Simulated scan of single mutants.
Amino acid sequence: MIECRDIRKEYRVGHIRKTVLKGVDFNINPRDRIGLLGRNGAGKSTLIRLIGGVEMPTSGKIIRKMSCSWPLGFSGGFQGSLTGYDNARFIARIYDKPYAEMRAFVEEFTELGHNLRMPVKQYSSGMRARLAFALSLGIEFDCYLIDEVIMVGDKNFRDKCQSAFFEDREDRALLLASHSLTTVKQYCNRAIVLNDGVATVYEDVDEAISIYEDL
């Protein structure tokens, strides 16, 4: 389980403090598939970064009792001067996974070929997304955090990603921030609507979608 307890997040903009999250409370349980809905700027990416440990909350606690991926879609996840292979080696070392296994998986999943020998800063956004998915899927996390990137790439790659997350890892938890209501309705069993810094949890996904559409 991952517990979010009274999470607040503020940023200083000049002389003004902007509050993005105002006391967010919810749990991510094992096997949960939670859709995170909200308008642009509602704080979806901020919340995912906090849960993934990329940023710290201004106040409140995040208690992680299961392993959690970094946020897919977070642009700061790579060392740009390193190659795709080097980034894979770095991740393998951090999570104590044999590099040979990680390398083989990344090669097969990304289909990037010789581009894996290039510095990541030379990658297109689509190539970076392929590498991001492969590196995250190369480690068996209990919970995956996905920020708006499930629909990147061509149809074959999108199908591969959806199969990897929603079928091959159906026993894992997932927090998915997405504007694709079809994807949320198809795959999620719960939903959270973020609005004005407040997170409302819905056990009925259809009800959450209806509320979101009315915003």
Rank of each mutant, 00 (worst) to 15 (best):
I146L: 14
G153R: 06
D142N: 14
V106I: 13
G138T: 08
V120R: 01
F141G: 11
Y123C: 06
A134G: 05
D142M: 13
G138L: 07
S136Y: 00
E148D: 13
L135G: 03
F133G: 01
K155H: 01
G138M: 06
S124D: 07
L112R: 05
T110Q: 08
E107Y: 06
F109H: 03
D147S: 03
F109D: 06
V149G: 08
H114Q: 11
M127Y: 07
D147M: 03
D142P: 13
L116K: 02
E111N: 14
F141P: 10
M118T: 13
L116H: 02
M118G: 00
R128D: 00
M151C: 01
I150D: 01
G153I: 08
V149C: 14
V120I: 10
K155C: 00
Q122N: 13
S125P: 00
G126E: 02
N115C: 13
N115A: 14
K155A: 14
T110C: 10
G153K: 08
R117K: 14
L131A: 08
L131K: 04
K155T: 13
Q122H: 12
L112G: 11
F141T: 10
L135I: 09
F133R: 00
E148A: 10
M127W: 07
R117L: 11
F141C: 06
V152Y: 01
R130E: 09
D154R: 09
Y144D: 04
G153T: 10
C143V: 13
R117Y: 02
I139G: 03
V149T: 11
L112W: 07
E140L: 12
Y123M: 02
E140D: 15
L116Y: 02
